[in-house]
């Protein structure tokens, strides 16, 4: 598994991107989806996921819907209009950062 510190700064971007592709998701589903997409390479820890989700919700980028599923309540997150706009910005930021890092590492090699 890659160094978890490396992806921590990108966690909100990962969450926003996932939610832009699904209508709504719940916390556990997000952890499993990331695991599946990265074939187990990236493991989002519960202790990092929920604070990020709550921060995004408090900042008005996500809205919440609580639904009864089976015998329990489930909290679904979905993007707000601001969240959709922010996803585009965050993705651009991340791509530009990756490009810069690749160029820097290439020059140092």
């Amino acid at each position: 598994m890659p160094n978890s510190k490396l992806y921590k700064g990108s966690l909100t971007t990962i969450i926003l991107k996932l939610l832009s592709e699904q209508e709504k998701m719940y916390g556990y589903e997000i952890t499993q989806k990331v695991k599946e997409l990265t074939k187990g390479e990236l493991n989002i820890t519960e202790g990092a996921l929920y604070p990020s989700l709550h921060k995004l919700e408090a900042n008005g980028l996500l809205e919440v819907e609580v639904v009864k599923v089976d015998n329990r309540l489930r909290k679904y997150y979905k993007l707000t209009n601001n969240g959709t706009k922010e996803t585009v910005n965050k993705l651009e930021e991340l791509q530009s950062y990756l490009k810069t890092m690749q160029s820097l590492i290439g020059k140092l090699a």
Binding site: Y28, Y50, R72, L73, K75
Partner: peptide, 11 residues
């Protein structure tokens, strides 16, 4: 609690 309970239950 509700969110944590659902997470634990799924796990």
């Amino acid at each position: 609690q509700t969110e944590l309970v659902d997470h634990l239950a799924n796990g």
